[in-house]
């Protein structure tokens, strides 16, 4: 049923697979948590894993942050320019959304490497 060439082919594919696994596990870093800070003060840290909506109404300003499907975005804000609301959802460590007028900063944190096996 199997030929020598089959085994050879299988070995090639396995090597490619292992290389790809290695590259994937060392390359990207999807964050695990969202850190929200206001004017430099940490407001709270939330897991990217569970969907939720966070409403901030501090300093008479209003921001609404939504965590959905492992991504974060600003769904609403009372700032004049709405740059933060227009920002596309973020999910990788180091990415951030800033609402300058309200001094709200959303950051993705969690340096854990993306693990293809555990996902």
């Amino acid at each position: 049923m199997f030929k020598k060439a089959d085994i050879f082919l299988l070995l090639i594919l396995l090597v490619v697979g292992m290389l790809a696994t290695y590259l994937v596990s060392s390359a990207d870093d999807l964050g695990t948590h969202v850190k929200i800070s206001i004017a430099g003060e940490v407001y709270g840290t939330y897991s990217l894993g569970e969907d939720r909506t966070i409403t901030i109404s501090k300093h008479e300003n209003y921001n609404e942050i939504v965590i959905k499907n492992g991504k974060v975005f600003m769904s609403d804000a009372d700032c004049p320019n709405k740059v933060c609301v227009k920002h596309s959802p973020i999910d990788s460590t180091g990415e951030s959304i800033v609402c300058l007028p309200n001094k709200v900063l959303i950051e993705i944190v969690g340096g854990e490497k993306y693990d293809a096996v555990s996902s």
């Binding site: 049923m1 199997f2 030929k3 060439a5 089959d6 082919l9 299988l10 594919l13």
Partner: peptide, 14 residues
């Protein structure tokens, strides 16, 4: 003509 149907199927799936 070097591979069996199993090898062909395996590569096809990948």
């Amino acid at each position: 003509d070097k591979f069996s149907i199993v090898g062909v199927s395996m590569c096809g799936a990948v």
